[in-house]
Design a protein around this nucleic acid. Structure first.
Lengths: 160, 160
DNA sequence: CGAGATGTGTTATATTATAACATATGGCCT
DNA sequence: AGGCCATATGTTATAATATAACACATCTCG
């Protein structure tokens, strides 16, 4: 499986770069990127696919960084609330954000076979709904698009 | 609260019309709209907002139509799989579909105060991602847009 | 009638998530 | 230093959501 956005890329560099970027962002914004939070972020960057909270908790437990659900959920809450990680509602799982720091309405391509997740740009998800929202007076704060389907890897070599 | 798409409409007529429409559809397609399935659909049409599976189960239980989770989940599975009901992943809840029968990628405006849900038209959610999907070879099967915000009712008269 | 497909009843359990309270840790004010 | 507040973590318990598995009923079709 190669769920890294479904295309090859410099994974080691991507992890390191994003991590550095987020570290800087936290330092400047006065956010505490504590060991647990940092480790959860690293795990998600490393896996580069959607992981459930309990998958993450298992890894933390192996490393002696925490063993009870709130440990994982708190770290994830922090990371999600600051835009470093996104929650994929459809999978009840979490994935490192491809564009941390930027304000954006994320869109995801989710493979229903391998659970690989690619984050896409969607400039206008909000704009799309804009007309409907305006008509009714609804104020959109966040918009998430989740598309389910088959990724190229699973399409070529069916798991069956 | 008036979460009916956030605008007034002929609710009784809307329930009846949709129900008739779905009944016809089922008859023609050879689908069994059994008592439990029909009742769950009615409940959702009547409430016209997102209900959790256990909320629905409570109502079924009161009416003697079933008391165990699988009863509700099976009915919901049927209704969702045939496009009569949509699941709002963000809320782990279910809402009657505003456009049953039509093939469409639904979009929802979800009020984070009252949990009211309006279903919007979104012709191009799929098209939006089309370019990205094409680039990577991802085959989109379903796409759902969920927007969170404040509905006009909650904005005007804050619950606080 | 018998076989297969579909739907329901029921028990048990899996999975995901949070409430609540105790214990650190570090800054900051006097 | 001492006291105080905010923030983070540790821990126990439990809530909320969802499904597996098996027994039984009903219906159709050959």
């Amino acid at each position: 499986m190669d769920p890294i956005g479904f295309t090859n890329h410099d994974h080691a560099g991507c992890i390191k770069g994003t991590l550095t970027q987020i570290e800087t962002h936290c330092r400047e914004a006065g956010l505490q990127l504590t060991p647990v939070r940092r480790r959860v972020l690293e795990i998600l960057l490393h896996e580069h696919r959607a992981l459930g909270a309990y998958d993450i908790l298992d890894k933390l437990r192996e490393e002696g960084l925490g063993s009870q659900p709130p440990v994982a959920y708190r770290a994830l809450d922090f990371l999600v609330s600051h835009g470093f990680v996104n929650k994929i509602e459809r999978l009840n799982a979490f994935v490192a954000c491809a564009h941390p720091g930027e304000v954006h309405d994320p869109a995801f391509l989710i493979c229903r076979k391998c659970d690989g997740v690619a984050e896409a740009q969607t400039k206008s998800a909000r704009g799309q709904l804009g007309s409907t929202a305006k008509l009714t007076g609804f104020q959109i704060e966040r918009a998430v698009l989740e598309a389910e389907g088959i990724c190229p890897n699973c399409a070529e070599g069916p798991v069956v």
